[in-house]
Write a protein that binds this DNA or RNA. Sequence first.
DNA 1: TTGAAAGCGCTAACAA
DNA 2: TTGTTAGCGCTTTCAA
Lengths: 363, 363
Amino acid sequence: MSRSQEPRAIATVPDVAREAGVSTATAARALGGYGSVRKSTRDRVLAAAEQLGYRANSLARSMITGSTRTLGVVVSDIENPFFRRSLRGIADTARGEGFEVLLANTDEELDKEEAAVRMMTERRVDGLVVCPADGGDRAHLADVIAAGIPVVLLDRRVAGLKADTVGIDNRKAARLATEYLLANGHRDIAIVTGGTRGMLERMLRPDMRGVERLTATTVGARAAGFRDAMTAAGVDIRPDLISSGGYRRQDAERETAGLLALPRRPTAILAFDAMQSLGAFHALSRAGVRCPEEVSLLGFDDTEWADVVSPGLTVMAQPAYEIGVAASRLLLSRIEGSGGAVAHRRLPTTLIRRASVGTPPSG
Amino acid sequence: MSRSQEPRAIATVPDVAREAGVSTATAARALGGYGSVRKSTRDRVLAAAEQLGYRANSLARSMITGSTRTLGVVVSDIENPFFRRSLRGIADTARGEGFEVLLANTDEELDKEEAAVRMMTERRVDGLVVCPADGGDRAHLADVIAAGIPVVLLDRRVAGLKADTVGIDNRKAARLATEYLLANGHRDIAIVTGGTRGMLERMLRPDMRGVERLTATTVGARAAGFRDAMTAAGVDIRPDLISSGGYRRQDAERETAGLLALPRRPTAILAFDAMQSLGAFHALSRAGVRCPEEVSLLGFDDTEWADVVSPGLTVMAQPAYEIGVAASRLLLSRIEGSGGAVAHRRLPTTLIRRASVGTPPSG
DNA sequence: TTGAAAGCGCTAACAA
DNA sequence: TTGTTAGCGCTTTCAA
């Protein structure tokens, strides 16, 4: 060991009390800022603490008070444009109320989500913001709620779970986006979703049976909204224009390239999130397909680069930061014990018209 | 309160012990996976725990073991392309070792950094990864280290602080980037830094006095590298091409617009991070300046959109994820008690040549 | 306003 | 292998 400084034992409340010549109870009151302490006594205690380099032990405090002032945040990937912005909203709001954030990524894998939720309950977080992975059993979330730990769901809803949710109306947002494409004259509209085949096939079923299950996921709800608009306009959905293949940018690139190679290519593409948009956009330029003259592109989520690429991306923007703020606020109010029925906050989306959507080629 | 389920009191080790008909110590051993317990006994305890819905209390455990298995991460902004990628590397590595991540943003503000570090020490994190804010007093970090909590600095070094650091060689990277621009024939090279005026003025001083202090920050080190290359090539640095104005994209946009309005505009721009690149790029297109024909652009950090914009951005890429992994690994090894001298890990950068750098206009 | 004492839920000696 | 017992550092009665 070449560490020069041997860490001196950290001072505790009794140490400070002794130094200040008061009881541990009095020292603890002065240090913790509760109960009543004469000003002169407090000053003496604080001075002693300062001198000894006292650091409060949150663990001990939390054991007794039953509160860790910590929010657990469980999302699939903090690098995702939507989540990273939401997380900032959550963290800023939490910080303002003296709460901290414990983070976990799940990569959309259910077992990682379960492990993360379990770990957070063991650490006694006061509440949880989670964006649940698609599909699968949700017993782990029900258990947490049953144990009295408030949970706010981000972006997605889970049928049968008594948890508050905050997000946008995904189905409506996709419908509006599709309507905008239709209004521009498009009929051969493709969707690049990132979701799984099975999920999307349910949407194609003419009777729409199972649509509730479908809309429990973001991709599913958006697919349903797409279908709503197409059906209302009397336009057939072409099954070959429904793409699915993973949430990474290169997945969207591959899928889009496939779409462009079709004998009858789409005249417009609706991409379901920012990474899908970026992938689709790149596939377009690589294929030398002019946007919007040959193929229009409409994406979800406004990002730092959406107005920098050329043409600027027309997007259905979600207020991601505000969604984080709202989720955090709602969670905080539940932690403070506010009761009332389960709340579902839907924040408004905005269609930001830039240059990537035009009319279909006349040919 | 309309919450239907009254949270039943959470089961503790004695509860489980009673249910299983063993002592608390035995139950604790079975539950905590330490000591020795006969298999049949363990099964009985685990079954009882399952039945009672037992959840371990990490706080109590940590109080005794002295370890929270938590890493504190303090960065200026998790939305920043470099930090978000690094954070993912840190989190993935930590998770693999059974550690979790407590997060804090500082927005480059020293008081927020101090508060975050204090909060984390009170929560008894086992170690800290911090990207220290530019300038100011660093006593808070020295205190943490003196208290025996390992600290790994990300991206930046702090003179006089006995902390490990992980990042790139910023000075060298900027020198190489500048040399590339020089090799392409540029002489009127501008830098868009995001840093402060004062920091950059130090760099312009012919005697380079204070360069050590300068290179303690990322911007400063990169500025020094820029100067190194310019000086070695015998090219004068034009003070009017040194821009500073804040780390947000719009700051870079404003600064770049100013640069382009100069009577003698630069033929190349070196942007000091991804947001600066994006802002500079946007300013270029908005001003109708062709890149690279009229002005070349070279940025730092490879991002998801760097190869999607047109022209593709030539960048000096840092291995952000790997830097996070390395920082995490180093921290974890210190937590496990590995001694040895302070380590400074410098990971290699890569110049990714795309299309945004060309030769200066012949006029 | 202050102090004495009990105890949060768990682990770690030590003994059996 | 199992049990008894003593705390970790703090807050919180309760009494003075």
